[in-house]
């Protein structure tokens, strides 16, 4: 009697403990696809895009992802013959999202830099912009060193973070936020005096405050954006590169650029030091 009761107790507890886990497992699917065949079989390509960086990736009035990256993603899915599923994410979390297989690829306005190329696989560039330092008009900044005494906001791990951290002494007051929205807010509210930005921040600011008090101070570099995947996915990489060539040749990419940035497509570099476009 005692042992029977004992056993039942164990089973009840055990089952109850496992139940939620089982439910979780039921609804789960295989991790990030390894090949194009897997994506096609699934019928959906999962693309990571930013959701707070107009005009690259943001939510439109109805809450749907929109922007340059999203349009390119749609083109890509169309050519692949599958549906695109966009997963909104933050700058700080994007690499973890693709590395842990949450998405198949990132079109997340991700600049092609050697540090990142060690972790993810880039394709050739599909977009470009300038990385700049933005500050109040009155602020005298001619070289980066002039900004050493200011409170500077950047997105943690972003291209601006890398450039500014490298250029300033360790004692500089650099505040690293989770995402672009926090950085922009910090600048507008005066929590920081300058921010690492890109040319499209300026576009947005000018739109909302036509007589705004901010201006571009320094250009750090021209940044090229590539599609990022997990390393080693050779056929996916080759396929994406072919596709980028295709939409460049057909003028489809130029149309996307015109629509969102209102500029002609820049001349993309054919190689970037330390950032291979193909699987080595």
């Amino acid at each position: 009697m005692i042992s029977k009761c004992f056993h039942r107790r164990v089973i009840v507890c055990g089952l109850a403990l496992i139940a939620p886990l089982g439910l979780g497992a039921l609804s789960s699917q295989r991790a990030g696809a390894q090949t194009i065949a897997e994506i096609k079989q699934r019928g959906i390509v999962r693309i990571g895009v930013l959701s707070e960086l107009p005009p690259w990736g943001f939510l439109d009035g109805s809450g749907k992802p929109a922007g340059y990256d999203v349009d390119v993603g749609e083109l890509l899915a169309k050519k692949m013959g599958v549906k695109a599923e966009f997963v909104g994410m933050t700058v700080a979390a994007r690499i973890a999202q693709v590395m842990t297989g949450k998405v198949d690829m990132l079109l997340a306005t991700m600049g092609m830099y050697p540090e990142r190329a060690k972790v993810v696989q880039f394709t050739e560039p599909y977009a470009g912009m300038k990385i700049i330092l933005l500050a109040k008009k009155g602020q005298m900044i001619e070289r980066l060193e002039d900004a050493a005494a200011l409170r500077i906001g950047v997105v943690r791990g972003g291209a601006q973070d890398i450039a500014i951290t490298k250029g300033l002494p360790k004692s500089a007051d650099i505040r690293r936020f989770d995402d672009d929205s926090a950085v922009i807010q910090a600048l507008i509210t005066g929590q920081v005096q300058a921010i690492g930005a890109n040319t499209t921040y300026m576009m947005n600011l000018n739109k909302i405050f036509p007589n705004n008090e901010f201006e571009q101070k320094l250009v750090f570099n021209e940044q090229w954006m590539g599609i990022a995947t997990k390393p080693g996915q050779k056929d996916l990489n080759v396929w994406l590169n072919t596709l980028i060539d295709e939409i460049r040749a057909s003028g489809e990419l130029a149309a996307v650029n015109k629509k969102w940035i209102d500029q002609p497509l820049p001349e993309f570099p054919t190689k970037i030091e330390g950032v291979p476009f193909t699987v080595q």
Binding site: A92, A93, I95, A96, M99, T100, V119, R156, G157, D161, R175, R176, F177, D178, A182
Partner: peptide, 23 residues
């Protein structure tokens, strides 16, 4: 950490941004 106060989670997030070893 989300307003960049200097504490453990923020330190961790900064390390993550450098090493990419989030987990």
């Amino acid at each position: 950490s989300s307003i960049t106060a200097a504490e453990l989670t923020h330190v961790g997030a900064e390390l993550e941004a450098v090493t990419f070893r989030s987990f």
